[in-house]
Simulated scan of single mutants.
Amino acid sequence: MKYQVYGDMLSGNCYKIKLLLQWLGIEHEWIHVDVLTRETHTEAFLALNPNAKIPVLVIEDETGKKEVLTESNAILNYLAEGTPYLSDSGLARARVLQWQFFEQYSHEPYIAVARFINKYQCLPKEREEEYYSKQEGGHKALKVMEKQLAAAPFFIGDNPTIADISLYAYTHVAHEGGFDLTPYPHIQAWLKRVEQVPGYVSME
C-alpha cells in the first residue's frame, strides 16, 4: 500500500496520524494543507473530503486503485489494525473506542478549541467569552484522564494504544489553550511515557 496524508502537523488531529505512522515505521507522503488560508476549500481538496477538514488519508493499492479515508480516529483504527496498538479482542477494542469517543466529545471541543482561539487567533475580544467558557469543560476532561492514569500507565493498561495517541495530541499542548497541567501529575507522567515510545516524533 502507498499512503498520502493531507494535513498540518500543528493540528492535533493531523499529528495523531503522523505519530502512529512513525510508531509503525510506515512510509508515507505528507502533503501540507494550510487551513488558515482555506486550502481545505479548494475544488481539489473538496473532491477528497467534501467536509473540508483535515486529516485525509489516501490509500493506493498495488493496482493503482485509490481509496480516501477521513476523520482522525477512523484513520488511526484503520492503520493500527493488526498491530499492538489496537487489540483484536472485543472488550479491549471497545475500550480503545470508548476513549476515542471521549476525546472527540468531552476533550477536543474544549481543549483544542481553546488552543485554536488563543494560539491561532490571538484571543480576539469577540471570542474571549467563548475561550473562558471552555476552561471548565477542559478541566473536567483532564480530571477524568487523571483518575484513569492513576490506575494504569496507559489508557488501556500497561501498553500504549491508539487511545493514547488520540488523547496525547491535544493534551500535550493544552497549555497553549490556557490549561495548566500542574495539578495533574499522572497526566504529566503519562505524557513522558508516550514520548518514550520508539518512533516518537514531536509536533512541529
Rank of each mutant, 00 (worst) to 15 (best):
N49F: 06
F179R: 00
M1W: 06
M145W: 07
R193D: 03
I75S: 01
A94S: 14
E71V: 03
L69K: 07
S106T: 09
G178Q: 04
N73I: 00
V201D: 03
V173E: 04
S133V: 01
P109K: 01
E204M: 11
K125N: 12
E129R: 11
H139L: 06
H139I: 06
D180V: 10
R93Q: 14
G25M: 12
I59L: 13
E27S: 15
I111H: 04
V113M: 14
E176S: 08
T161K: 04
K66T: 15
E146W: 05
E128I: 11
Y184M: 04
A174E: 04
D158K: 13
A114Y: 02
H186K: 13
T83D: 10
L48F: 05
P84I: 01
Y78F: 15
Y6F: 15
A152E: 11
T37W: 00
N51Q: 14
H32R: 11
H28Y: 15
V197W: 04
I187C: 10
L149R: 02
G138P: 05
T70A: 13
K143R: 13
L36M: 14
Q98P: 01
Q188T: 11
A47T: 08
P183E: 07
E71R: 02
Y110V: 00
A189F: 05
Q4H: 11
K53E: 09
H28M: 06
I17H: 03
A47I: 00
V58H: 06
L86F: 07
K140R: 15
Y105N: 13
V194K: 03
A169L: 07
I111M: 07
R127H: 13
G199C: 07
Q98G: 06
K192F: 00
V33T: 13
Y120E: 08
C122L: 14
A152K: 10
N51I: 08
A174G: 09
V58N: 06
T37M: 00
L79M: 11
M1Q: 11
R193T: 02
Q188D: 08
I75C: 03
E128Q: 14
L20M: 10
A151N: 12
Y78N: 09
E129W: 08
I17A: 03
V58D: 09
Y170W: 11
P198N: 09
K143M: 11
M1T: 12
G199N: 09
D61N: 15
V5I: 15
D88P: 01
L76W: 04
S89W: 00
L181Y: 08
K143S: 15
S89G: 04
V33W: 03
H139Q: 12
Y170C: 07
I187K: 00
P198K: 07
Y85P: 01
N51M: 13
T161A: 05
G177W: 00
F101W: 10
H32L: 09
S106V: 02
R193L: 14
T161I: 05
M9H: 10
K147V: 11
F101K: 03
V194R: 02
D180R: 09
P109I: 01
T37A: 11
M145C: 09
V173G: 00
T42S: 15
T37E: 11
S72G: 15
K16Y: 05
I156A: 01
E60Q: 15
I156R: 01
T161E: 04
E195R: 12
N118K: 14
A152I: 01
E136W: 06
F155S: 01
K16F: 00
A141G: 03
K143C: 09
I156S: 00
L24E: 07
Y170E: 05
W190F: 10
N159V: 08
P198A: 10
D158N: 15
